[in-house]
């Protein structure tokens, strides 16, 4: 294990107990010269109450949809001045929804920035509303009967932008996430990581279970870890689960969370089909970008 001993997020910050963002932010500590750009979301709160700030790196709070564009401007200015910097946008799935055109635009321009979407699969900071990446059938305050729409594959869409680096990651596998961030630090240009971040209050599970549930998502195949840097590879934590028979039954993942309470057998079958389709996509990508 070579994980950071310290976090850029200092103790005594406003994050909830067992917050997955706090875990993800720990991993960011492997990057040097970080300037963190934070759109509205949970991390707006986690950042602390003035005059104190929770981060040991510079943080710029910005409006929801603007983050990746602000980061583009920062990166351009640092480049102009010859300042060494890793401009990192740390956003949730909400900012990724509202600012999607901004992410896409910056990706097309191949801006020299790192974008991490810490995805807790709903708009948590405003009180658990459904997002583009909310899991199939999950109950949120705007989908009280369970989400009926599709789940958007953000990393897949970013892959189609042909940027230098795209990966999925999980707060349950910090070593894998850190390895990916280290890889990211060796590459220039637009780098995108979609981080799976189970949220205790939002998904209704005990704060001690964040890591366990994140791992169950991977073990059940519901979240697939992969990496693309010109080559597409399924990451080691997910590798065993290419073989469907090795996977933990999806029910094991689903039953741990209040957001899935009351799902019918039919619902679960439907979700399994969706998960299968996702595996098909990922395996096809692996073959395509060998």
């Amino acid at each position: 294990m070579s994980l950071p001993m310290e976090s850029i997020l200092l103790p005594g910050n406003p994050a909830c107990q067992g917050c997955p963002h706090a875990l993800g932010l720990r991993a960011l500590s492997v990057l040097e010269n970080v300037v963190l750009v934070v759109p509205a979301g949970c991390t707006t709160i986690i950042s602390g109450v003035h005059p104190k700030a929770s981060f040991s790196v510079p943080v710029l709070h910005v409006p929801f949809a603007s983050a990746v564009a602000v980061a583009s401007g920062l990166a351009a200015a640092y480049k102009q001045e010859g300042v060494e910097a890793n401009v990192v946008v740390w956003m949730g799935d909400g900012a990724a929804d509202i600012g999607f055109a901004t992410i896409s635009g910056a990706a097309v321009r191949n801006e020299d920035i790192i974008v991490v979407v810490s995805d807790n699969e709903a708009y948590m900071n405003t009180g658990i509303q459904s997002s583009g990446t909310t899991f199939w059938k999950a109950k949120t305050t705007t989908s009280p009967g369970g989400k009926s729409e599709e789940k958007k594959d953000l990393a897949g869409i970013m892959l189609m932008h042909r940027i230098p680096y795209v990966a999925t990651a999980s707060v349950g596998y910090l070593q894998d996430f850190v390895n990916k961030l280290r890889r990211v630090s060796e590459i220039r240009g637009f780098r995108f990581i979609h981080l799976h971040s189970p949220c205790p209050p939002g998904w209704r599970f005990d704060s001690s279970k964040t890591v366990e549930i994140a791992r169950l998502a991977v073990k059940s195949g519901a979240w697939i870890l992969w990496e693309y840097d010109g080559r597409f590879r399924i990451s080691s934590p997910s590798k065993p689960y290419k073989d469907e028979t090795k996977r933990v039954p999806l029910e094991e993942y689903i039953k741990t969370q209040g957001r899935f309470r009351g799902l019918s057998g039919e619902d679960i079958e439907e979700i399994k089909k969706k998960v299968e389709e996702q595996w098909k996509f990922v395996l096809t990508m692996e073959k395509t970008f060998k």
Binding site: L10, P11, G48, H50, P51, K52
Partner: peptide, 16 residues
């Protein structure tokens, strides 16, 4: 500037 710029510190949410 003091009202706009917050300084890095432990315990930004108090004694959690």
């Amino acid at each position: 500037l003091e009202h706009l710029i917050a300084k890095s510190s432990e315990g930004s949410a108090g004694k959690t």
